[in-house]
């Protein structure tokens, strides 16, 4: 995010040529930005379109309206408000449980040394390579037997039960905290439990934020599991599935612009969250962990 301007003071011999190159770069960047921003702008403009249907040949709305946003929360076919709430609930619980699990597991793998550590790490790596929804049918059967079919609890479980496998990024972070801290605390008589809560966690704010945000965003964007798990139970849909339903064949004409409004509503908070946490994201990915 910072402007690096070290180069600007350097004296250059080929000033004119440099300038021409820079102008070219500006042009390329501007064109690219236009291409990249265009669909987003198109989406936002459509969400203010007063005319129904998706075949509009106009870029700007033919009739400006805010009605789509009202219709989003107030219509006969889709209970978007309910879905929004569902997603929020699922996201909050998933976030808390997953973050806790991830921190616990990655702390154990990073700072503690025990006999079967390597085995566990390998098993984790192997499990991560199975396609996530390969066993979706089986998982649904389990939920049914537990009496949790079609419930939000089932979603929270599905999203957070496997969270332990997502330890790589946090583990990479914990690895960078100097071990001497642990040693010093140990000499002072602290147990590993105390070290975890009192010393390591306060130092790990960035990774906690990163983990919490990613696990919070997950339920907002998952389509596969909700679709398979919730079947006909519209009361427990989440926004991703709900929005997808809006542009299914039966509804697309009537609800296309409403879909756009819904997409904007979902995209705004997530976009803000992502922009805030982008530096954690970069740190996380380039931390160097090999993930399955």
């Amino acid at each position: 995010m910072t402007n690096t301007t070290q180069g600007s003071t350097m004296k250059e011999g080929y000033a004119a040529r440099k300038k021409a190159v820079n102008v070219a770069v500006y042009i390329i960047l501007s064109v690219m930005v236009l291409i990249w921003i265009f669909p987003i702008v198109w989406l936002i403009l459509r969400s203010f379109e007063g005319e129904k249907g998706m075949s509009s040949s106009h870029f700007l709305p033919q009739k400006w309206t805010f009605g789509n946003y009202i219709k989003l929360f107030n219509n006969e076919d889709f209970m978007f408000g309910q879905w929004f709430l569902n997603t929020l609930i699922v996201a909050i619980f998933t976030c808390i449980i997953s973050t806790l699990f991830i921190l616990m597991v990655s702390y154990a793998f990073s700072r503690l040394r025990f006999k079967s550590r390597k085995t566990f790490l390998n098993i984790g790596l192997i499990l991560g390579m199975f396609p996530g929804f390969m066993s979706m049918a089986a998982t649904y059967n389990i939920m049914e037997i537990l009496g949790l079919g079609k419930s939000l609890v089932a979603l929270v479980i599905v999203y957070s039960a496997g969270a332990g496998l997502g330890y790589q990024v946090a583990k990479g972070f914990f690895d960078t905290i100097p071990r001497s801290l642990d040693e010093a605390a140990k000499i002072d008589g602290a147990t590993r439990n105390q070290i975890f809560w009192i010393i390591i966690l306060p130092l790990s704010k960035p990774i906690i934020v990163y983990t919490a945000l990613t696990t919070f965003i997950g339920p907002w964007t998952d389509y596969i599991f909700v679709d398979y798990f919730m079947k006909d139970n519209q009361e427990t849909y989440t926004v991703a599935l709900g929005l997808y339903k809006m542009i299914e064949k039966e509804f697309v004409t009537e609800y296309f612009t409403t879909f756009c409004a819904g997409a904007v509503v979902i995209a705004i908070p997530i976009t803000i969250l992502f922009v805030i946490m982008q530096r954690f994201y970069v740190a996380g990915v380039t931390g160097g962990a090999v993930k399955g």
Binding site: G53, M54, S55, I247, E248, K249, E250, V252, T253
Partner: peptide, 15 residues
């Protein structure tokens, strides 16, 4: 296309 036969027909006649 992606909007389905019904929507296409509705839209097509409307426009």
């Amino acid at each position: 296309g992606s909007s389905g036969d019904n929507s296409t027909v509705q839209q097509g006649f409307k426009e």
